[in-house]
Design a protein around this nucleic acid. Structure first.
Lengths: 329, 329
DNA sequence: CTGTTAGCGCGTTCAA
DNA sequence: TTGAACGCGCTAACAG
């Protein structure tokens, strides 16, 4: 393993000089900088990230907190996009990233979690799919001991940035398109679960649309479950002329119910997951770019670390019509 | 942040004594051990894993190398299971784990990759879904600079353990069950892709069965693609009376083709993925427990680090009949 | 059995 | 502009 010392010797300079070149300090002459860089190339030197992390608290690591248990809209595919986006961007920015599943921190008190993270030199955190009941994580955000970026939850403070699409508007848009396409009037809305922040926002968008278009609106709690959505659709779809779902998974459940009932109703979903070989008909959905959202989240953490205050970041989305033959892979 | 020194002061002992207690050294008196442990509890101390890693090369980290691009049998769900299993087990064994996607190391020469890993204090590697064309990774295994565990690929040396189910036997079993159930004779076998190690093994199992049962066997390359499998089935299914697929995804493609053709043929798959709301009929499949495989992989890395030689580990599987109503979630 | 000491590889003062 | 020296938190010899 080639260390910074060998590079220094090879280049005939001091260790600290190499360090300064590595970290882009300004006050280094071009001559020495090039000497050092040549030595680095030649020795194929890569700085030891462990040592760097230990030495400077400033350049700590970022924890990605995922909850794969929460069977919400979060199909594994979405998590993989999140992970990919975060890891790629982290590599780009030269940041170290640690993946943490909530199962690994379950049962910890806020203090324990705090210690646990500090002990790993973690300074920044990205929280995906926060629930209203995650009191420990909520406390973590509140205490501002770490730089946080929260995806799809409304938290902003000096050290916390919120990121996500505008769920209220997106739900409004996709529902409106679906309803206008088929001139519908009686909406069955299958909502998410109560402990999720997006659920309320999406419902709000649906309600606004219903008000504006003077629609009849029946709201049922689908809990982001395919099965529950299916049962709801089985029970109520006949008397309604359109089904709006707060997630693609529930939309699939609803569509399956329609097949069983042998009736047709326009359906729309949310998320834009592509692993849907099972969609036999077309369906409108809100497509979010989870990869971009996650990349941006990492950039936001970096921004916080660099001293900028937390803020609200709204990501773009698009309304798309998915069709079986387009999405088979 | 509580450091080991504070604990030492609090307990009235030397730093090294605390360290010895932490790492379970034998020659510590019960009295001091308890004093130290009390101090640890009281101060809610968690050792800094970064510092520990830097200090002792022995306790390095483990890299998980995943290739989400490879659209093989590897649905994201499988990767999530792998990740979960690995992270949970790593936490259990107090090992640090780093997630690496192949996109992050693409284009590196073997030397660069070697440096890159060393620079992160990585000593062990778990490679999921290795392809025959990954010359860089293959070289990594060959050079034995790291402790490797390879999932579903036949590599064993002093520092490399291979782990996975017996694909040859599993393919044999699931095909046999499917064929016996319906008294079939003419098999359409949709194989994986040539660059995968499991493809050959599964095909071998199918061929053995065909020999034993004196079946007519037509083999086509499906490349683990739903679409390709669908096209193959569209073309050949009519003249065959059973379709055996080397992955669930391809089985789904084949089933969709059968629906289009409006004919029935028994189909069997491989993997046991559960995200299949789209399976309208029942289907036999080989169910692998990816979580267990991954946990075991971590244990195997630990075993290698502890000085044991590499070996072949065969994991159990089961043949299951999946049905729509069982797997909706 | 316990404490002292010397690093691990790097970042960062402060002199020079 | 450069380099010597110190320290991050911990482990691992060694000495007592």
């Amino acid at each position: 393993m080639v260390s910074i010392r060998e590079v220094a010797e090879h280049a005939g300079v001091a260790i600290s000089t190499v360090s300064k070149v590595l970290n882009g300090y300004p006050n280094i002459s071009d001559v020495t900088r090039q000497k050092v860089q040549a030595a680095i190339k030649e020795l194929n030197f890569v700085p030891n990230s462990i040592a760097a992390a230990l030495s400077s608290k400033q350049f700590g690591r970022i924890a990605l907190i995922l909850d794969p248990k929460r069977q919400t809209q979060a199909i594994d595919q979405i998590f993989m996009q999140f992970l990919l986006g975060a890891l790629d961007q982290a590599k780009e920015l030269n940041l170290e990233v640690v993946t943490i599943f909530t199962s690994m921190i379950a049962g910890m008190t806020p203090e324990e979690l705090n210690r646990h993270l500090h002990s790993q030199s973690i300074v920044g955190i990205v929280i995906y799919s926060l629930s209203k009941e995650d009191t420990v994580l909520l406390k973590l955000i509140e205490e501002q001991d770490f730089f946080c970026v929260v995806v799809d939850a409304p938290f902003v403070n000096k050290k916390t940035t919120a990121i996500g699409v505008d769920h209220e508007q997106a739900q409004y848009d996709v529902a409106k398109k679906t309803i206008l396409d088929d001139h519908c009037q009686n909406v069955l809305y299958i909502a998410g679960r109560r402990d999720g922040y997006v659920t309320a926002q999406r419902l709000k968008g649906m309600k606004r649309l219903a008000r504006e278009m003077e629609l009849s609106l029946l709201v049922k709690q689908g809990n982001f479950s395919e099965r529950t959505a299916r049962q709801i659709a089985l029970e109520y779809a006949k008397k309604r002329d359109v089904i709006v779902c707060a997630s693609d998974l529930m939309a699939i459940g609803a569509m399956n119910a329609l097949i069983d009932l042998d009736i047709f109703r326009p359906v729309c979903g949310f998320d834009g997951i592509t692993l849907m070989g099972y969609v036999g008909k077309q369906m409108n959905t809100v497509r979010q770019d989870f990869y971009s959202i996650s990349s941006q989240a990492i950039r936001e953490v970096k921004r916080l670390i660099d001293g900028q205050p937390g803020r609200q970041v709204t990501m773009p989305y698009s309304i798309v019509k998915m069709h079986y033959k387009d999405i088979i892979c």
